[in-house]
Simulated assay, not measured.
Amino acid sequence: MSGKNQHVVPHGDKWAVRGAGNDRVTSTHDTQEGARRAARQIAINQQSEVVIHRPNGEIRDKDSYGNDPHPPKG
């Protein structure tokens, strides 16, 4: 992967996109889906991964938009 992974995380009563290791959020959104779409665009540009978190912070899902070192089999 080339760029920094993008995390979709709860942010108060909204959802945010935060680059891995960043203290500040890149953008905030009213819905998780809105934040996921924004993170996806960044990840495509940076050839990185989107990590989607649940409201409790637990990782729910990951999507890769670069050279995936572990592509799905089958």
Score class of each variant (00 low, 15 high):
Met1Thr: 09
Met1Cys: 08
Gly3Arg: 03
Lys4Pro: 10
Asn5Gly: 03
Asn5Asp: 15
Asn5Arg: 09
Val8Cys: 03
Val8Lys: 06
Val8Leu: 07
Val8Gly: 04
Val8Thr: 10
Val8Phe: 03
Val9Gly: 07
Val9Ser: 06
Pro10Gln: 05
His11Ile: 00
Gly12Glu: 07
Gly12His: 10
Asp13Gly: 11
Asp13Arg: 13
Lys14Pro: 04
Ala16Asn: 07
Arg18Ile: 09
Gly19Arg: 09
Ala20Ser: 15
Ala20Arg: 13
Gly21Pro: 07
Asn22Trp: 11
Thr26Cys: 00
Thr26Ala: 12
Ser27Asn: 04
Ser27Met: 03
Thr28His: 06
Thr28Ile: 13
His29Ser: 01
Asp30Met: 09
Asp30Lys: 15
Thr31Asp: 04
Gln32Asp: 08
Gln32Pro: 04
Glu33Tyr: 04
Glu33Cys: 09
Glu33Met: 11
Gly34Cys: 06
Gly34Pro: 02
Ala35Tyr: 01
Arg36Ser: 13
Arg36Gly: 08
Arg36Asp: 04
Arg37Val: 07
Arg37Leu: 08
Arg37Pro: 01
Arg37Ala: 06
Arg37Trp: 00
Ala38Cys: 02
Ala39Asp: 01
Ala39Trp: 01
Ala39Leu: 00
Ala39Lys: 03
Ala39Val: 02
Arg40Thr: 15
Arg40Lys: 15
Gln41Pro: 01
Gln41Thr: 07
Gln41Val: 08
Ile42Thr: 11
Ile42Gln: 09
Ala43His: 04
Ala43Val: 01
Ala43Ile: 05
Ile44Asp: 01
Ile44Met: 12
Ile44Ser: 01
Ile44Ala: 01
Ile44Leu: 09
Asn45Glu: 13
Asn45Asp: 15
Asn45Cys: 05
Gln47Ala: 12
Gln47Arg: 15
Ser48Ile: 02
Ser48Thr: 12
Ser48Leu: 02
Glu49Ile: 11
Glu49Trp: 02
Val50Ser: 02
Val51Glu: 04
Val51Asp: 03
Ile52Arg: 05
Arg54Tyr: 02
Arg54Asp: 12
Pro55Glu: 13
Asn56His: 05
Asn56Thr: 10
Asn56Ala: 06
Gly57Cys: 09
Gly57Lys: 03
Gly57Ala: 01
Gly57Ile: 02
Glu58Trp: 06
Glu58Tyr: 07
Glu58Val: 12
Ile59Arg: 12
Ile59Glu: 14
Arg60Gly: 12
Arg60Cys: 04
Arg60Ser: 14
Asp61Arg: 14
Asp61Gln: 13
Asp61Trp: 10
Asp63Glu: 15
Asp63Asn: 12
Ser64Trp: 15
Tyr65Val: 06
Tyr65Cys: 02
Tyr65Leu: 07
Tyr65Gln: 10
Tyr65Asp: 06
Asn67Ala: 15
Pro69His: 03
Pro69Ala: 03
His70Lys: 13
His70Met: 12
His70Thr: 13
His70Phe: 14
His70Ala: 12
Pro71Cys: 02
Pro72Arg: 12
Pro72Ala: 09
Pro72Phe: 04
Lys73Val: 14
Lys73Arg: 14
Gly74Val: 05
